[in-house]
Design a protein around this nucleic acid. Structure first.
Length: 380
DNA sequence: AAGCCGTGGTC
DNA sequence: TGACCAAGGCT
């Protein structure tokens, strides 16, 4: 067997200094170096840190976890609100998981909030780690998040491999296979290119390049500092990279949901199990419609099975389609009247009767927030 | 290792 | 407007 890798892609290690130099020169002018965009990346007096300076690692850690699969623009207001409510690791560790989830509400991937809380309780115990392995040992922190925290916070020479970096590298090499299948190779590329003298700036510059120039749809190659050695640019159509696997169609299901009111005008909600979809969030009870079943029958059956109650289904409140990352659901929501049975958490953590005014104090998924809005409209 | 896990921006 | 994608991690 010959040396496949040598034949398949260029070795850019010799070019690394030149690539870093051109990238950083671009970044000094066009990078997202704005305290209004990434406040955690700046010193207390509002400067971009010098190589020897450290940042507030708590701020970096919270930001990096929020930024997992989530755009900078979306994260910013959540980060600001979070730091106000949990300004220290002790404040976060001492908070209830309920408070933490309420603060996270709407950001998605809710296990991140639970793991952030668990990690805070470990970090509150002793000195904060400074090495990659210790950070990776904390819940919710993988190699990219750990590398980002340490390179941002301490200027540690650690590579990252997020969606931006994968796309830039895939194009730079015109790599013929989806990055997901070749993590080892892409990590090597990211490490080879990393500037050991300025890892903080280099990682930020690489992500800024991917987010603002080497974008998925319309890459602005005319402004790219790496155009001179980009294989995808040379091939004529950079958007052919990164290669992707054919997407699988999302399964579609109809969910019958009951907004159950009792004689006092209280509403029935349940808290989902911690694991799985929307773990730990509150919701209006319901479940999948079975083949041949009417939606009214579905709601009656689900509430009997999951809560042990008998209800009578009334008027339709709202119907809404909602796409998750791996399935599409249609929620058909009906107002219902409680008839008999004390609600039991047979398929959930807890069940509670609450007045509609209290709903704000529970963390709900986005789809349920729309149901609450419809409920308020129907009551008024 | 491939599937699960949310939501909103963007075109 | 539906489809793709985002500063990924976990199992």
């Amino acid at each position: 067997m010959g040396q496949r890798s040598g034949a398949e892609h260029r070795d850019l290690s010799a070019l690394a200094p030149e690539l870093s130099q051109s990238l950083l020169a671009w970044w000094e002018i066009h990078g997202r170096k704005d305290p209004a965009l990434k406040p955690w990346m700046f010193t207390k007096d509002g400067r971009w840190p010098e190589p020897h300076e450290h940042l507030n690692v708590l701020e970096c850690w919270i930001a990096e976890v929020m930024l997992q699969q989530t755009q900078l623009k979306v994260v910013l207001p959540y980060w600001q609100g979070w730091m106000k409510v949990f300004p220290t690791v002790d404040a976060l560790a001492a908070a209830s998981l309920e408070q933490v989830r309420l603060q996270w509400q709407g950001l998605g991937y809710y296990s991140r909030a639970r793991r952030l809380h668990a990690a805070a309780q470990r970090l509150a115990q002793g000195p904060w780690p400074r090495d990659l392995d210790s950070w990776m040992g904390l819940p919710g922190i993988g190699r990219t998040t750990a590398g980002s925290i340490l390179s941002s916070g301490f200027n540690a020479p650690l590579a990252i491999l997020d969606g931006n970096v994968k796309r830039v590298l895939a194009r730079l090499h015109a790599h013929p296979r989806p990055p997901a299948r070749e993590q080892v190779l892409f990590w090597q590329w990211s490490e080879v290119l990393l500037d050991p003298a300025r890892p903080r700036d280099f990682n930020q510059a690489l992500m800024d390049l991917g987010a603002t120039v080497c974008t998925p749809r319309n890459p602005d190659c005319g402004r790219c500092p790496w155009q001179f050695c980009c294989a995808a640019y040379a091939a004529g159509d950079p958007t052919r990279w990164p290669m992707t696997d054919a997407p699988k169609p999302l399964p579609f299901q109809v969910i019958g949901v009951g907004v159950v009111l009792n004689a006092e005008g209280h509403v029935l909600i349940d808290q989902r199990l911690d694991e799985g979809l929307l773990g730990g969030l509150w919701e209006f009870p319901g479940g999948k419609q079975e083949p041949g079943e009417s939606i009214e029958a579905c709601i009656e059956r689900e509430l009997k099975e999951e809560l042990g109650i008998v209800i009578s289904v009334g008027e339709e409140l709202i119907t809404l389609d909602h796409a998750y990352s791996h399935k599409k659901l249609r929620f058909v929501v009906y107002l219902c009247a409680w008839v008999s049975g004390d609600p039991q958490p047979l398929a959930s953590q807890q069940v509670r009767w609450v007045s509609p005014d209290q709903l704000d104090t529970f963390a709900f998924p986005a789809a349920n927030a729309k149901m609450i809005e419809a409920l308020r409209r129907s009551i008024n």
